[in-house]
Design a protein around this nucleic acid. Structure first.
Lengths: 235, 235
DNA sequence: TAGTGGTCTAGACCACGGT
DNA sequence: CCGTGGTCTAGACCACTAG
């Protein structure tokens, strides 16, 4: 089942398979996935590898481990719990939903002597034949990292898919700070925000690739309908 | 160095020692802590245990591991990077600062038939003989979990210290959602917020103990001077 | 080449939950 | 009592960094 010759670590391969099964509904909310020992035998590997894979699922908030019982699926399919910046399309795909993007601005800018492609998109999902926009996403992409990026149409293509397939660049890490922001009229119209809401959440920061190169500066405005949940452990 | 007879896992003991050393400044921003092999030898344990400990430090955002080089300290000592809800006093103590609390409200309330102690505090630190308030913290504490809690003076005592020492309850997990909130006049005065700021970050949720019992409902308003940083990995 | 963190193996014992 | 996840050991080989 797992490919030892692949450059992707076994536990990441296993994590992806388990995540796929959970998101496909093979294991449902409140059910237990197979025990660590069973997974270990099924995939012909060791428990350490299985535990590494499951710990990624725990980090995603997809499962919760209960001692003496098993590993419980924690899936609230109707909530977008955004701890996953970068990769909106991937995030939706993994949940079997289709994302829609509308390009609001596309230009070249220079900041502190560095050239960037600037891309501003409204992003959402389709609900009952209507597109609901959930966020506005401003990206600055260094021209030096992505030469010729402006030839792609990001209403049709996923930015991160182009990173991977055309530039062989894999986003690996994000550094984001959160702040509130007062809603301006344009944002209010695009995201169709109620008059009772006056502020929304803004995430601002950078995304780095496997070599710790900054590949994107982002500023994301989230619609109030997106829940921003965080779970932490205390040690 | 590590106590195998202690009920606290070795890797948590090790994590706390390393965290203490980092926060004490024994390893400074940008420096490398000893390698995994060195730590392993110094504490007479195995590499797996060391890696478990370091992974907690990585989760806290205190260090970053760089393959082929070492484990780098990532400390911005003047920034309060709040991924650590619950335990403001503990958080400050670990950074060798002293927290100040002012009780704004203390009462009993009943919600959905459950009795709670309600405690509202402004919390801050002392800077040049002046107390700077950083957050307003509203807590609801179930009377059934904490009988007699109202006898303590939480301007003098740490709530979490009382949990641990008087009730033998250890906070273990938080579920928090983040939202923006428009600043009201009272909040603006307490936190001494500039007129240019119109909204701040609100964290709202629950805190659970080692047995997954909800021990506290919290609502925290953060002053704009507190940075809210998050680092994530993409797999 | 030596040292680092990243991954993987193959065991072991424990505390806890349910029977 | 057995099965679960939690912890720990003692190795191994790898890819990467730097001298």
């Amino acid at each position: 089942m797992l490919d030892k010759s692949d450059y992707i670590p076994l536990y990441v391969q296993l994590y992806r398979k388990l995540r796929e099964q959970i998101l496909n509904g093979e294991y449902k909310q409140g059910e237990f996935i197979p025990s660590e020992t069973e997974v270990m035998k099924a995939f012909q590997t060791t428990r350490g590898t299985v535990r590494n894979a499951i710990s990624l699922l725990v980090n995603d908030g997809l499962v919760q481990q209960v001692r003496g019982k098993g590993t419980l699926v924690l899936l609230s399919p109707l909530k977008y719990s955004i701890t996953n910046f970068g990769g909106f399309t991937d995030y939706l795909n993994s949940r079997k939903e289709i994302g829609y993007s509308k390009v609001l601005e596309k230009s070249n800018v220079s900041i502190d002597g560095v050239e960037y492609y600037k891309l501003v998109r409204a992003r959402g999902v389709k609900k009952e034949d209507k597109i609901i926009y959930l966020m506005i996403d401003k990206s600055l992409l260094p021209v030096s990292v992505f030469p010729g990026l402006d030839q792609y149409d990001f209403e049709k293509e996923s930015l991160y898919q182009v990173f991977r397939e055309k530039y062989n660049i894999f986003p690996k890490r994000t550094e984001i700070s959160l702040r509130p922001e007062i809603i301006n009229q344009q944002t209010r119209e695009i995201l169709e925000i109620d008059e009772t809401e006056q502020a929304l959440l803004k995430a601002e920061g950078s995304i780095f690739d496997q070599n710790n190169i900054e590949i994107e500066k982002v500023k994301i405005l989230y619609a109030p309908s997106l829940d921003f949940n965080i779970m932490t452990e205390i040690n």
